[in-house]
Design a binder for these strands. Structure first.
Length: 331
RNA sequence: GCUCUUGCGAAU
């Protein structure tokens, strides 16, 4: 089962998680018994593909094979139902389980938080026998970013005993979500440790609040401090460049992404197309667009809007027809 | 034995 698990895990995290399910099916055809590593991977694949309806039968076979008492499998199931919005099913599993651990509580809390129900999450938080940093951060994020109640989020944040980076990040992002870039910055300056997520949150915050110059300054400081950029951070920087019309800085980050393998993906390339369009370098935008292996509906949109901005209505329409002809993967 | 489920940031 070990080899099968690894293949399933690989596919579950890949861009085509359906292959995880196909592998799972082949595993069963070969009469290989699943173990308690297998199901969490399969369930993860089921939850990232919302269209897929295999979850129910996976649930059934997990029970049939005697995993009803296995916390990894049960927690995987709770998480699966939460992710597809079936909170009642998740709750039923949770209530019926005799082996609730921290992960079970945290998973269900996340389910409520994701649907904006911070008060139900709070009930769980108050009722749970012990809490870890995850529990606190889930609820801070639930009150702050997800429900827009930054005051409650801050109360929790101040109460929290051993603050880790993620909870600081959540709190900062709560302020950013409420458009409060000042308090966000203050907290950012106060925090003892920052990771690339912290920087990204604030960079995106400045961009969203219309301060692209501050975003770029922050990015410069980040590089000076030796933090490596990732895709999410890069997208913030690219957005700042397109807001500013800063073609030179945009080109710089583009070449940086090319030099570092693994940083160019569909999202960053789309952001680059958008940036080059808005900065007026239509050739470069076109070049990236043509070379992209997969174009999402957003890629097509930014290209058409970009052409429109520069008065190429006919070309935009032509692009629209191309898109219709080729078909776009829905997400 | 190796594989371990839950929390924070992205493009129109």
């Amino acid at each position: 089962a070990f080899a099968w698990n690894n293949i399933i895990r690989f596919h579950a995290r890949s861009s085509s998680p359906i292959k995880a399910l196909l592998t799972f099916a082949r595993m069963r055809q070969n009469r290989v018994l699943a173990d308690h590593y297998t199901y969490p991977f399969v369930l993860k694949a089921c939850s990232v593909v919302p269209r897929l309806d295999e979850g129910g039968s996976v649930h059934g076979s997990a029970l049939k094979e005697g995993f009803a008492e296995d916390s990894f499998v049960v927690n995987g199931l709770i998480n699966f139902y939460c992710k597809r919005g079936e909170i009642a099913s998740a709750r039923k599993l949770f209530d019926g389980s005799r082996f609730k651990d921290l992960v079970s509580w945290n998973s269900l809390m996340t389910g409520y938080v994701d649907r904006g129900d911070a008060s139900e999450a709070r009930k769980l938080f108050d009722a749970m026998p012990e809490r870890d940093a995850f529990s606190w951060t889930i609820l801070i994020d639930g009150y702050g970013k997800k429900a827009g109640d930054v005051g409650r989020a801050r109360e929790l944040f101040d109460e929290m005993p051993n603050k880790d980076v993620a909870c600081w990040n959540s709190m900062i992002d709560g302020y950013v979500g409420g458009g409060m870039i000042g308090p966000a910055r203050q907290l950012f300056d106060e925090m003892p440790q920052r990771n690339v997520v912290s920087w990204s949150i604030l960079i995106h915050g400045y961009v969203r609040c219309g301060y692209p110059k501050q975003a770029l300054e922050l990015f410069q400081r980040m590089l000076v401090e030796g933090i490596r950029t990732d895709q999410v951070c890069a997208v913030g920087v690219i957005s700042a460049c397109s807001q500013l019309g800063a073609l030179d800085q945009g080109r710089w980050i583009h070449s940086y992404l090319k030099k570092n393998t693994g940083l160019l993906d569909g999202v960053t390339e789309t952001a680059l197309v958008d940036m080059y369009m808005r900065c007026g370098d239509l050739q470069q935008a076109r070049l990236i667009f043509d070379r992209m292996p997969k174009r999402s509906v957003v890629t097509w949109n930014v290209s058409m809007v970009g052409l429109g901005i520069h008065g190429f209505g006919a070309e935009a329409l032509e692009l629209f027809h191309q898109m219709e002809k080729g078909g776009v993967p829905m997400d």
